[in-house]
Simulated scan of single mutants.
Amino acid sequence: MDHIATVQDAAIAFADWIEPTPAELDAIEREMPVIVADVELLDAQIMTLDRTPTELDARRIRRARRRALAARVALLNQTPGTLPLPGGAA
């Protein structure tokens, strides 16, 4: 009978009340430049996994790393009242 509870949990996972709140969607939107920069960095690193990195690859990774860092700094330099506190504290 354990499989019935699993099926029920899967059905409840898509309930309307589990949708992200507008505040959570706004937080994701603010963090989107950081997310995109991190994905670009991962893409640059993944391209070099199966071969020896060339000088161009090294430059691409350095450039992506700088963009990711700049995106994080820009997020942190926003108005302090707009960023959520760690741990979900308000």
Rank of each mutant, 00 (worst) to 15 (best):
T54I: 12
E31I: 12
P84Q: 03
D2C: 09
T82L: 01
E19G: 09
R60I: 02
L69G: 09
R62E: 14
V39G: 04
T79E: 01
F14K: 10
A23Y: 02
M32N: 11
I46Q: 05
P84D: 00
D16T: 13
L56P: 14
A74G: 12
L41T: 06
P53L: 06
A11K: 06
N77G: 03
R51M: 09
N77D: 08
A27P: 02
G87T: 03
L69S: 10
P22M: 01
A23T: 02
E55Y: 07
R51H: 15
E40A: 00
V36D: 12
D9F: 11
D50S: 12
I46E: 11
M32T: 13
V7S: 05
T21Y: 01
W17L: 12
L56Y: 07
A89L: 10
A68M: 04
Q45H: 10
T52C: 07
G87Q: 01
L49P: 12
V39L: 10
M32P: 00
W17P: 01
A11L: 03
R65S: 08
A44F: 07
P80E: 00
L85A: 03
L69D: 14
I35F: 08
G87I: 03
L49H: 15
A89P: 06
V36Q: 10
A37E: 01
I61N: 07
A90M: 05
I46S: 04
F14A: 02
T48K: 07
T21S: 13
R60H: 07
A58H: 06
L41H: 07
D57P: 06
E55D: 12
R59P: 04
G88L: 13
A89C: 02
A44Q: 01
A27M: 06
R59C: 06
P20K: 11
P53C: 09
R67F: 14
E55F: 14
A37P: 06
R65K: 13
D9E: 06
I46L: 09
L85M: 12
L75W: 00
E55R: 15
T79Y: 00
T52R: 13
L85H: 11
A89R: 05
Q78K: 00
V73Q: 01
I28P: 02
A10R: 10
A5W: 15
D9W: 11
P22W: 00
A27K: 03
F14L: 09
P22T: 00
P22D: 00
P84K: 01
L83R: 04
L69P: 00
I18L: 14
L56S: 03
R66W: 15
L75D: 01
A70Q: 09
R66M: 10
D50W: 08
A89V: 05
D26V: 00
R51C: 08
R67E: 07
V34Y: 05
A64V: 11
R30D: 01
P80Q: 00
V73L: 04
W17Q: 03
D38C: 03
G88A: 10
V7P: 09
T54C: 05
M32D: 08
A5H: 11
P20Q: 14
R62T: 04
H3F: 03
V34A: 07
